[in-house]
Amino acid sequence: MSNRRRPSRDNTYRSRYLHSPAWFGRRDRWFVDEEHRNGVVRCALCLGAGSPRSLELHHFDYRGVTQTPFGWTAHERHEDLTALHPRCHEYVHQLIERDRALSGFVSRRTASLQAIARLQAKIAHYIEASLEQQ
């Protein structure tokens, strides 16, 4: 099993589910729940505050997503989703796709969390280096 993304044309999740009313409803509920839990919604990578308009949701697990003859259902647990700025989201996917260890992990959650941790370490390194140069 691979954590690499399949091309959109071969992926009904990306081409249909992410455009479905079920997903938009689930996404809206996630943001409301997150604000109630933490007061503010932050990007899991850069930790910058955001809103439903400025953040995307990344799936750690797809088990709550099913397609029925009547359409899509969206029953992802709150913990199976995390907010990321679009650029941060793309960085996470790029790292997972390019790194053999991450793309080969059995668990998408593990691959995603490892990618986020590695990218956070890189950000911290760049910030530290730029502060030293001042």
Rank of each mutant, 00 (worst) to 15 (best):
R42N: 05
E90T: 13
L47Y: 03
E56D: 15
C88P: 00
E97N: 13
L131R: 13
L18K: 04
S130R: 10
E76T: 13
T73L: 15
E97S: 12
N3Q: 11
A74M: 01
Y126F: 12
Q120C: 05
F60A: 10
L131M: 11
G104D: 01
P86V: 07
E35L: 05
V92M: 09
R42C: 06
A74W: 02
G39R: 04
P21Q: 10
L95F: 09
T73R: 14
Q94P: 00
N38I: 04
R27V: 04
Q67T: 03
E132G: 13
S54C: 08
F70S: 12
R16H: 14
Q120T: 04
S15T: 14
H19R: 15
E132R: 14
L57C: 06
H36S: 10
R16M: 11
F24T: 06
F105P: 00
L81Y: 01
V106G: 14
R98Q: 15
L18E: 06
E76I: 01
G50R: 06
Q94C: 13
L57W: 03
Q67L: 15
C88G: 03
E90G: 08
D80E: 13
M1I: 11
R16A: 15
A74E: 09
I123L: 12
M1E: 06
Q120D: 02
L84H: 07
D10Q: 12
F31Q: 03
R53N: 06
T110A: 14
L47D: 15
S54Q: 07
R9K: 10
L102N: 07
C46Y: 09
L47F: 06
D33L: 01
V106M: 05
E90P: 00
Y126N: 13
Y62C: 05
L45R: 13
R77V: 02
S8N: 11
V92C: 08
L57H: 04
L119T: 02
T12M: 03
L18P: 04
R29D: 08
L47K: 11
D80I: 00
R6N: 06
S8I: 14
Y62N: 12
R77S: 10
Y13N: 01
G39Y: 05
G25N: 12
W72A: 10
A129F: 01
V40R: 05
S2F: 07
V40A: 04
G25A: 15
W23K: 02
N11M: 04
T66N: 10
E35T: 11
G71R: 03
A22W: 00
H85D: 07
A22N: 03
V92S: 07
S15H: 06
I116A: 09
T68N: 03
P21H: 07
H93P: 04
M1A: 12
Y13I: 14
S8R: 14
L131C: 08
R100A: 15
Y13D: 01
S2T: 15
P86A: 09
